[in-house]
Amino acid sequence: MSELAIGVFDSGVGGLTCVKELTRLMPHEDIIYLGDTARVPYGTKSVDTIAKYAKEDISFLERFNVKMILIACGTVSSVLMSRPLFEDSSVSAYSGVIYPTVTAACAATQNGRIGVIGTPATIRSGVYGKAIREIRSDIKVFSKACPMFVPLVENGYTDKNDKVARLIAEEYLEGMKREGVDTLILGCTHYPHLEGVISEVMGGNVKLISSGAEIAKYAERTLITSGQAADREEKGKLTLYCTDSEELFAENVETFLGHKDNITISRCSVK
């Protein structure tokens, strides 16, 4: 089983933050990534629709006999807390981003004031706050839905000097600054692509917690502990699938991963 690939999925390119960290931590692992770009964003959809899409994404990755599935999507991860998305799945090792992320945030905060930004669906669910209080009941949690961040990332408006991104970030984050949070959870895996502008708006003293990076660290610990980490010397293969324009997806891949070496990109259907 150690030679099988890791499966990762997200509604679009956001989950590439997880993939980038996975390839850094475990360069010998094969990774199969699905970005459901035809139906992005998930965060503005109903819970029933999100669950339907997620099950289709899971079924797609199961075709490749993956050893683990990582839900590199904050929205689907929030639905996973209340819906049995894996009840009929052949994959027993899986994780969303919630618990790895809140564990890191609780360890990082010094003043006990944590901010959470995410899609409307994630923020409505309240799962980050509930998970944080399970670990530390003394922490105060401040949440804000940031629906425009995903379209910004999907369309390449990610530079910290971009005027549009800066204007939107300032409006969304004004309340977080006012509440004096010292730790900010980027509760959607798209958001780390905006880390530069978010950091400038919040100030350098605020710790940003990337949900994509934290789930990758969790995967590394889990696979090593269970003896399922790849045992080979050659570099792993990265196979990426998207459900809409392959050309547009490839442009984002090169931008967000920094290269296209040893990467295969294909368009697919998950239905």
Rank of each mutant, 00 (worst) to 15 (best):
Q110E: 15
Q110I: 09
N111Q: 12
G112H: 05
G112N: 11
R113S: 05
R113Y: 00
I114L: 06
I114D: 01
I114A: 09
I114G: 03
I114W: 06
G115T: 08
V116H: 04
V116E: 07
G118S: 13
G118Q: 09
T119A: 12
P120L: 11
P120C: 11
P120G: 09
A121D: 11
R124S: 14
G126K: 03
V127S: 03
Y128M: 04
G129W: 09
G129L: 07
G129R: 11
A131K: 01
A131N: 02
A131P: 04
I132N: 01
I135P: 03
R136T: 07
R136S: 13
S137G: 13
V141R: 02
K144R: 15
K144Y: 13
C146D: 01
V150S: 04
P151H: 03
L152Q: 04
V153M: 08
V153R: 04
E154K: 07
N155I: 07
D159C: 08
K163S: 14
V164M: 13
V164P: 01
V164G: 05
R166Y: 05
L167N: 13
I168D: 00
I168W: 02
I168F: 07
A169E: 03
E171M: 08
Y172N: 04
Y172T: 09
E174C: 10
E174Y: 10
M176G: 00
M176F: 03
K177C: 12
E179A: 11
V181N: 00
D182G: 12
D182T: 11
L186W: 00
L186Q: 00
G187S: 09
